[in-house]
Amino acid sequence: MTPAPAPPRRFGDLAVRSVIAVIFAATGFGAIWAGGGWGLAFVMIAGGIMAWEWRRIAARPGDRVLAGFQALAVAGAVFVAFHGRIVEAAVFLFAVATLGAAVDIARARSPWWSLAGALYLGAALSFFVLLLGSPQHGLQVIIWLVLVVVATDIGAYFSGRLIGGPKLWPRVSPNKTWAGGIGGVTLAAVAAALVGLGAGRGVGGGALLAAVLVSAISQAGDFAESAYKRKFDKKDSGRLLPGHGGLLDRLDGMIAATLAVGVLSLIRPELPIWAW
């Protein structure tokens, strides 16, 4: 009699995921903390890689070279936005991404996924360097953003694995549960409260609401990337990070959350989001 297969371990991938996540986080945080050219270089390289991976998901054999247009559009827009030239960054992003889309059209390919990905990534990462470069509270806002997203990931991972239960969107992401989603939002709110207390501001209701919203949008970004990969029958965006897949797989929630924080910061520019 053939023995029954052993059930999958609940946290079987935790060790590899944790080691890679710590190494990547340390590298990214070190570059951002150093600021200046180090932070800019990290965001530009990360943006170029994610744009390449985004194009790769939808690419057919022989088409991947066209990902260079999207990588250049995103990295270039980040560089221009870092120097405070917001309008020029938007023009550069749209022009180069559209040029890549035009090449797709000329080759009888559908251009819209690649164009949308470049604009999405370029806008989010341009917001990131603009927030980081803010002379008053830029680094604090970025730290708040990172803590909220990391808390969301940790809360969702452990709540989902320990509690289980009904799935959020099984057709797109069969491992994600309602328990995980709620756990992620809850831990994100706790992280925001701790930031407020640590900064001597207390627990602001506005900051908690912002953390809940940003956490939910972060999880929505994760689902959106999963749906995009499933449409083109891809499991991962790449193989750069063992246990995580590609860089886009690791930062999909951060990209969506950055876009949300950037927009929210425009709504209330007089206060950093962690002090609302």
Score class of each variant (00 low, 15 high):
residue 223 F to Y: 13
residue 136 Q to N: 13
residue 142 I to H: 00
residue 225 E to L: 12
residue 190 V to Q: 01
residue 211 A to L: 08
residue 161 R to E: 09
residue 142 I to T: 05
residue 171 R to K: 15
residue 236 D to F: 00
residue 191 A to S: 11
residue 168 L to R: 07
residue 147 L to A: 11
residue 208 L to A: 11
residue 191 A to K: 12
residue 189 A to Q: 12
residue 175 N to Y: 06
residue 200 G to M: 10
residue 134 S to E: 15
residue 222 D to W: 04
residue 157 Y to K: 04
residue 183 G to H: 04
residue 225 E to A: 09
residue 137 H to I: 11
residue 135 P to S: 07
residue 177 T to H: 04
residue 204 G to A: 14
residue 160 G to L: 06
residue 245 G to F: 00
residue 238 G to E: 00
residue 160 G to D: 07
residue 220 A to E: 05
residue 173 S to L: 00
residue 185 V to G: 08
residue 248 L to F: 08
residue 155 G to Q: 02
residue 184 G to K: 06
residue 203 V to D: 07
residue 229 K to D: 02
residue 200 G to R: 07
residue 188 A to D: 03
residue 234 K to M: 12
residue 123 A to Q: 13
residue 181 G to R: 00
residue 228 Y to L: 15
residue 126 S to R: 06
residue 137 H to M: 11
residue 149 V to R: 03
residue 122 G to D: 07
residue 220 A to H: 01
residue 185 V to E: 03
residue 187 L to R: 03
residue 163 I to C: 11
residue 120 Y to R: 09
residue 196 G to H: 03
residue 130 L to M: 14
residue 171 R to I: 09
residue 183 G to E: 03
residue 127 F to D: 13
residue 149 V to L: 07
residue 205 G to M: 11
residue 132 L to I: 10
residue 249 D to Q: 04
residue 171 R to V: 11
residue 216 A to L: 14
residue 217 I to N: 06
residue 138 G to R: 05
residue 131 L to E: 09
residue 123 A to G: 12
residue 248 L to D: 03
residue 128 F to P: 14
residue 235 K to T: 03
residue 150 V to W: 15
residue 240 L to E: 02
residue 129 V to H: 13
residue 217 I to Y: 05
residue 151 A to G: 07
residue 184 G to T: 03
residue 128 F to A: 12
residue 188 A to M: 06
residue 177 T to R: 05
residue 185 V to W: 06
residue 183 G to M: 00
residue 238 G to R: 00
residue 204 G to F: 08
residue 164 G to M: 05
residue 154 I to S: 10
residue 215 S to N: 05
residue 203 V to I: 15
residue 240 L to W: 12
residue 152 T to F: 08
residue 177 T to C: 01
residue 124 A to W: 01
residue 233 D to I: 12
residue 193 A to T: 05
residue 214 V to I: 15
residue 152 T to W: 08
residue 186 T to R: 10
residue 169 W to Q: 09
residue 233 D to N: 14
residue 131 L to V: 15
residue 146 V to Q: 09
residue 237 S to T: 09
residue 139 L to C: 08
residue 223 F to L: 15
residue 239 R to D: 14
residue 198 G to D: 02
residue 195 V to D: 00
residue 129 V to E: 09
residue 205 G to H: 08
residue 129 V to L: 08
residue 213 L to E: 05
residue 185 V to Q: 07
residue 227 A to P: 09
residue 173 S to A: 01
residue 204 G to P: 12
residue 195 V to I: 14
residue 224 A to L: 10
residue 193 A to H: 03
residue 248 L to N: 03
residue 174 P to Y: 00
residue 165 G to K: 06
residue 146 V to C: 10
residue 218 S to V: 05
residue 211 A to T: 09
residue 182 I to E: 02
residue 191 A to P: 14
residue 166 P to A: 04
residue 238 G to A: 02
residue 189 A to T: 13
residue 228 Y to H: 05
residue 209 L to G: 15
residue 176 K to P: 12
residue 169 W to P: 12
residue 133 G to R: 10
residue 245 G to Y: 03
residue 124 A to G: 13
residue 194 L to D: 01
residue 131 L to Y: 08
residue 126 S to T: 13
residue 132 L to R: 15
residue 129 V to F: 08
residue 193 A to K: 00
residue 248 L to M: 11
residue 191 A to Q: 06
residue 229 K to S: 01
residue 221 G to P: 13
residue 125 L to F: 13
residue 177 T to N: 04
residue 162 L to P: 07
residue 236 D to M: 01
residue 134 S to C: 12
residue 135 P to A: 07
residue 128 F to I: 12
residue 125 L to I: 09
residue 145 L to T: 01
residue 163 I to P: 15
residue 168 L to Y: 04
